[in-house]
């Protein structure tokens, strides 16, 4: 096949990929609504659940002694500081919609916005977790 036709196929391929990305983007955007709670997992285990309605600052103890400083402010969540060298999680900014997350790989911390409580793998009730924090 000559080069001209190949470029045509390239263009078709890239267009299809762009359209798919648009659909995924719209799908994610449209289904996104403001969450009620924020769930913090370390190494795949749910450790804390906080309400988005009250402002809070909290230090997450991550895997292998790492820490991430979590801030909840006006229904938004972000990590203000962390012990990891790259600080990618801090640069990931603020999140507020269901399904959005901040991930810190070195500390294996996942901060995720959920609608209500995380049902399947929730450890303990919110009261118990509050007791640990307080």
């Amino acid at each position: 096949m000559n080069e001209k036709n190949k470029i045509r196929y390239d263009a078709v391929l890239i267009t299809i990929l762009l359209v798919i990305s648009l659909f995924i983007f719209l799908g994610v955007k449209l289904t996104g609504k403001n969450g009620k709670n924020v769930v913090v997992s370390v190494d795949g285990n749910v450790m804390y659940t906080f309400s988005l309605e009250e402002n809070r600052e909290f230090e997450i103890k991550g895997y292998d002694g790492g820490t991430n400083y979590l801030v909840i402010e006006d229904g938004e969540v972000y990590l203000k500081d962390a012990s990891c060298p790259d600080l990618l999680c801090v640069h990931m900014g603020k999140i507020r919609s269901i399904g959005q997350s901040i991930i810190c790989l070195p500390n294996r911390v996942v901060v995720e916005i959920v609608d209500g409580e995380k049902s399947s793998d929730n450890i303990g009730s919110e009261d118990e977790i509050d007791a640990i924090v307080g």
Binding site: L18, G44, S101
Partner: peptide, 23 residues
């Protein structure tokens, strides 16, 4: 890999951004 190893589906949120940046 992130979905499997971090045991979370939350990261799928980044798919559109990573898809576009990949293109």
């Amino acid at each position: 890999a992130a979905v499997v190893f971090l045991n979370t589906t939350a990261i799928v949120w980044y798919l559109p951004v990573l898809w576009l940046s990949g293109i």
